[in-house]
Amino acid sequence: MPEQLVFAMEVFLNGLMAGVLYALVALGFVLIYKASGIFNYAQGVMALFAALTLVGIMEGQVPFAHLINAMLGTEIHHFGWHVPGVLAILFTMAVMVGLAWIVNTLIFRHLVNQEPIILFMATIGLAYFLEGFGDIMWGADIKKLDVGLPQGINLWIDETTFNIFDYGFFIDNLDIVATVVAALLVCALVIFAQYTKQGRAMRAVADDHQAALSVGISLNFIWVMVWSVAGFVALVAGIMWGTKSGVQFSLSLIALKALPVLMLGGFTSIPGAIVGGLIIGVGEKLFEFGFGPMLGGATENWFAYVLALIFLVFRPQGLFGEKIIERV
């Protein structure tokens, strides 16, 4: 086998893995958009906030330590205990549910019936607020997140591929875990949406708010629930990305990576988010591999957007999006 082709295959596999991570973030977007028509720009910051909270709880950090120290002149930083990973994840989940409730009660209940663009702007405001809030609460320094996920090169794949192609593929264990987790998450979400009472209510709300209200579904409850589920997805994405590259501000930028995925897959489709994520992940890695050196590198910054843009010109609702029907 020619060497270039083997390299391309490795790039392809790594692209698939990266795509799964993009899809994880995109999933959170789709959930909220389907259920409430809100395009939640703050999803990336929610992932950052979840990861920050998780690290903070695990390390026993004092919330707002920086602020308290600045105001009172004290020198407190840590409570001095360490919380095990699983327990910390549960605590963080509780925080995310609380956040969902606050966001819904304080912001989106007051914006019912506003135009979608106003809701979108409100989520950008929320993103800014959460970003500042997370930094003030837990500090802005780069943190290491380790909840016990395996990391580093997968030796089995390395050996197997070496025996076949004379060249060992570098696949990170973490990426494999992320893929499995994402698959489980999607299955769980589909089962939840199709077979549980709350899931059916969620789909009803997504279909038609007023009709759902008239058959006795509480919109408030559903919205809090959806934001909580999105918070959970954000937490999972935050753990994966945080373990991969440290918990820091740039984590919130993965929201920007998820946007072309959404465009490609369609804003309303869960399978679309997965397929879109895979296409974008593979596409940008292969493009960088093939044309990056020619164009000066770092094409990953824009390739996904241009790909999605070109695609949308031919199919404006994305791959799996609902057909847009406009009436006067």
């Binding site: 395009f39 979608p116 663009i117 979108f120 920007l256 946007l259 072309p260 959404l262 465009m263 804003f267 164009l295 000066g296 590198g297 770092a298 094409t299 910054n301 824009w302 957007y305 241009v306 999605a308 843009l309 949308l312 010109v313 404006p316 609702q317 994305g318 847009i324």
Partner: peptide
């Protein structure tokens, strides 16, 4: 002309990232 609403908002991000990259690289 083809893309509307949020899809367009996200599509304009293509301009943002592409142009910045272009001025950085060329």
């Amino acid at each position: 002309l083809r893309i509307k609403g949020f899809y367009l908002a996200v599509a304009t991000l293509a301009a943002q990232f592409f142009l910045v990259w272009l001025f950085n690289k060329v």
